Amino acid sequence: MKICKEEKIIVYGLHPLIEAIKAKITISNIFLKSGIKLTSNAYKKLLFLSKKENIPIKTVPESKFFILKNKNHQGVFALLSPIRTYQIKDLLPVFYERGKNPILIILDRITDVRNFGSIIRTSACAGVNAIIIPKKETAMIGSDSIKTSSGALFKVPICQEKSIKNTINFLTKNGLKIVSATEKSNIYWYNIDFSSPTVLILGNEEKGVSPQYLEISDERVKIPLIGGISSLNVSVACGIILYEIFRQRESNLYI
Rank of each mutant, 00 (worst) to 15 (best):
L200F: 02
T198A: 01
G208I: 01
S231P: 09
D144Y: 09
S163W: 00
T198E: 01
K177D: 10
K177H: 10
A124R: 05
L200W: 00
G175Q: 13
V128N: 01
S196L: 06
P134M: 08
G151F: 10
K165R: 13
K135A: 00
P224H: 11
P224W: 08
K135M: 04
I192P: 03
S118T: 10
G203L: 07
K162S: 05
K207F: 02
I132K: 01
P211C: 04
I216F: 07
K147Y: 14
S123E: 00
N166F: 04
R121C: 15
I201E: 00
I141Q: 05
R220F: 05
N115A: 13
N166G: 07
T172K: 14
T122E: 12
G151A: 09
F116I: 08
I119C: 08
I178P: 03
M140L: 14
R220N: 11
S180E: 14
A181F: 15
V221M: 14
F154T: 04
V199R: 00
T182F: 12
I192Y: 10
I120W: 10
P211A: 08
K173V: 02
N186F: 15
S185K: 06
E137F: 01
K135E: 08
E205I: 09
F194I: 09
E206L: 12
I164P: 02
S217R: 06
T122W: 14
V128R: 00
A152Y: 12
I168P: 00
S123A: 12
T138L: 07
I229E: 12
A126K: 04
E137I: 00
S150Y: 15
G127Y: 09
V209I: 14
I229T: 11
E137R: 05
F154L: 09
P211V: 08
T198P: 05
S123K: 03
K136W: 04
I216D: 04
R220G: 03
Q212E: 10
S150W: 15
K162Y: 08
N204A: 06
L176D: 05
K165M: 13
I223Q: 05
Y190M: 11
L214E: 10
I119H: 07
N166V: 02
N204W: 05
G227P: 14
N186Y: 14
I132T: 01
S195Y: 12
A126F: 12
W189C: 13
E206P: 04
I158C: 08
E161A: 07
I187K: 15
K173S: 13
E219K: 11
K165F: 13
P197N: 03
R114K: 15
N169I: 00
Y190L: 13
G227N: 14
G117Q: 11
A124L: 09
E137C: 01
F194R: 01
K177P: 06
I164G: 01
G203K: 02
T148D: 07
I192W: 09
P134F: 04
G228A: 12
C159L: 09
L202V: 12
S196A: 07
G175T: 13
I131N: 00
S230H: 15
S195E: 08
